[in-house]
Amino acid sequence: MSSAPTREVAQRVFAREFNDSGYTFKESDDDRAPVYLLLPTGERANRIFVVGTLTETEDVGEDSEYWRGRVVDPTGTFFVYAGQYQPEAANVLREIETPKYVAVVGKPRTYETDEGDTNVAVRPESITIVDAATRDRWVTETAGRTVERIEAAAEDPEGINEYARMATEQYDLPPENYREAVVAALEELEDEESMDAEIEAA
């Protein structure tokens, strides 16, 4: 008998890796089949979860409102676009005073730039304001998940995992590249902590 379509898990990915991704694919011919973004570390993402700093919002729409938000993590910037079909998220971007820590749940969307490059952005399902501790949790969680993907890719040179194989075929982006992003993100977190400690000691 029929079973409910399983809900797509939200991948944890840093901006550096997300913005390097440009290849999308479907796993069936059905019009409504989910679209996946291929991550260079060898995973598919139909949904992502991001916590970062919303630094800037701007209405970039011509005829109707179309809000763009820049959400920054330790490795780069996520571009989040919300228009009339994402009214709640567009409301948040319209009303919010930046900068704020925000949690964004959304779908990856790719688009072509005028120069013919493929860019990737986030179409938000929800945007909520969170605190710094939630953001720190996301950074360590995303670092952990990214390390797991890099390790899995390193232990699988034959490309047994189909997404790892797809990544080597589609991208010239070795998963080890993102080790640096993880290290940078964690170092930043450590610096913050030691700075907090210094402030308290002072």
Binding site: D131, A133, T134, D136, R137, V139, T140, E141, A143, G144, V147, I150, E151, A154, E176, R179, V182, V183, L186, E187, L189, E190, E193
Partner: peptide, 19 residues
């Protein structure tokens, strides 16, 4: 509600550097 780092960032950092 849980917040703050999931694991010790120091440990994760050592692991990330050693891959």
């Amino acid at each position: 509600e849980i917040s703050g780092p999931t694991t010790d960032p120091e440990e994760l950092l050592i692991k990330a550097r050693s891959i």
